[in-house]
Design a protein around this nucleic acid. Structure first.
Lengths: 342, 342
DNA sequence: CATCAAGCCCAAAACGTTTTGCAAAGGATG
DNA sequence: CATCCTTTGCAAAACGTTTTGGGCTTGATG
């Protein structure tokens, strides 16, 4: 690897000035340089393997072509990976690159990391959470293009993107209704977060829309983990006139429901149908039969968020936007018609 | 947000030249500037909220303080998140920041993304895979500090870090032996990858070390998914003189083994003990009882990799190093003594 | 032949740092 | 008092781009 080739070397090799090289390379069709020269310069540049130094051009242009991604946690679920990938793909398509930073729950660390991003002159940042929640935007981000990913603030001036929780639940429940179920139980989360409320609303909407009246004994609340799902499902499925289908807050909860069904000797989906939310492939694919579920669109949200920051950067002053992304149904094998006797 | 404050503003406010500011801020204890002045400059800088522009200093120093992380895929498992977090933490501690890029399996895209990283003048890159495998290092990376993460090449001149597969398997199997098992089955992977061979070696080592002779019927090979694990376990556990414990290639395989055990009416761990490898919390915590398993040290490998590139950068010419990171046992509830009759 | 416009190209400044070489001031030594 | 260090500070150059203002050709026009 010889020493890096700069615009100067290209100029010398092409027998023109650096000015001309810059124009030849950057201006699509320039009035400053003859088409023939332009082609020549480009050829020379390619042959020399010229690659512009973005530190230099960023310094000159006051634009780094870098986006910051700050997220809370990044482990334990594959969600973070999907978001990052969506963000990175969108950034790449528009000539940007992502700097990622994550601070756990440490506010002080987060502060210092954001400062670092700013030192690197990031043109904007997407501020991400791993599950849909309300946040307070760090002070330091004021005045810089920012969009929230899987999070919202009260401030209508900041753009954000979250899953459409209500719609996700409706989709899940309507799948059950379409299969013929009317006695549908729901295992909801205890936590006071948007997903809890949104999914409950969606559940009720779907029932109401189909004229099914909701038996309050069929709604149970537990901790949103496998163990909580297991206990809740054990409860629901032991009731006389038990539900023939279960809408679970999450795939992990659904996994608990599988365990409960197995423990009670109920087969899925012959005796009881189950749907979840998340599309955690690690779980949904691994269960037996596969879990029908509604996917949380982390990849798409990642894309949306960076496209939005980039729009803000390229065209400042556009009004903010709070997006809710639709959640597609992923069918596997856990939904069937209700048992004949029911 | 007023216009950004640069070193010039600090100089003016402090009543000194920019040279002095630079020295005051950068040199720990400088012979160029009086201690008193230094303190004064620093105070002024802090009050003004001065943050150096790293594009400018990178340009000047020929050092961007940015590391590239290029990985293949990033979705479906939480591994990528753990690696990225480890990398980012280590980078942060040493004043660096990570640019991440991922290209799926697309070699051409990967090429262009690496070019982009180089345009941003990354000081080094860690080239990551999501599961331990052999790779060929892209041409473009030649001549730039690079370390492999969860991957190896034939080239002894390039540093790499992978999990210690043999040791991981030994740890898992010895846990079973310590619990009293001697009839231990293994469900291995079909794929010809390092994990397959390493874990088999570890399995045999552990048995040999404890003078247990290996019944070849107790080794079965399947696809490394839940379904494969289920079938393999069904096979193993139906044998007369069946194993009392199963060592599974991965947690997903182990999940299949749980399903098989349940289907056969065997309780875990009373009738059969099970250990996996991966420590996929999503699965290991969700199984019932929890799965005892050996963790793959993705976080630690991420840390190791960036520390290694940084060492290479700061102190070039050190010999390369191929590290294998130990894998800790994570005990949950799936291992117990063998059944009394056995 | 003189003038002008158009077309093409270039020199130089600027972006915000770091670092080198030098200068001024002060103190010690002969 | 002259000389020589030491200490402290500064001006200027450099990093690799982009862009502005101007200058040189060329050919056409009066």
């Amino acid at each position: 690897m010889t020493t890096r080739v700069g615009i100067r070397e290209v100029a010398r090799a092409a027998g023109v000035s650096v000015t001309t090289v810059s124009h030849a390379l950057n201006d699509a069709t320039s009035s400053r340089v003859k088409a023939e020269t332009q082609q020549h310069v480009r050829d020379v540049a390619r042959n020399l393997g010229y690659a512009p130094n973005r530190l230099a051009s960023g310094l000159r242009n006051q634009r780094s072509q870098i986006l910051g991604l700050v997220s809370d946690e990044i482990t334990t679920t594959p969600f973070a990976g999907a978001m990052i990938r969506g963000a990175q793909d969108a950034a790449y398509e528009r000539g940007y690159v992502m700097m990622v930073v994550n601070s756990g729950l440490d506010r002080e660390l987060e502060h210092r990391e954001i400062i670092m991003l700013q030192q690197h002159q990031v043109d904007g940042v997407v501020y991400a959470r791993l599950y849909h929640q309300g946040v307070e935007l760090p002070q330091e981000l004021a005045g810089m293009p920012t969009v929230l990913l899987d999070a919202v603030t009260g401030d209508p001036a900041v753009s954000s993107v979250v899953p459409d929780e209500v719609n996700a639940a409706e989709t899940a429940v309507e799948t059950l209704i379409r299969a013929g179920h009317t006695r549908i139980g729901m295992i909801n989360n205890v936590d006071d977060i948007p997903a809890t409320h949104g999914r409950l609303d969606g559940f009720r909407n779907a029932l109401r829309r189909h004229g099914i009246e909701h038996d309050p004994r069929h709604l149970v609340i537990g901790v949103a983990e496998t163990s909580g799902g297991r206990e809740a499902a054990l409860d629901l499925l032991s009731q006389p006139g038990r539900p023939t289908a279960l809408f679970c807050f999450s795939d992990r909860v659904a996994m608990g429901a599988y365990q409960a069904a197995t423990a009670l000797g109920l087969r899925i989906p012959e005796d009881v149908s189950i749907v979840g939310i998340d599309n955690l492939e690690l779980i949904a694919d691994a269960l037996w039969p596969g879990l029908t579920t509604v996917a949380l669109p982390h990849y798409e949200m990642g894309r949306w968020a960076v496209n939005r920051v980039l729009d803000d950067i390229e065209n400042p002053g556009a009004p903010a936007e709070q997006a809710r992304i639709a959640c597609p149904l992923i069918e596997r094998g856990s939904v069937g018609p209700p048992p004949a006797g029911a």
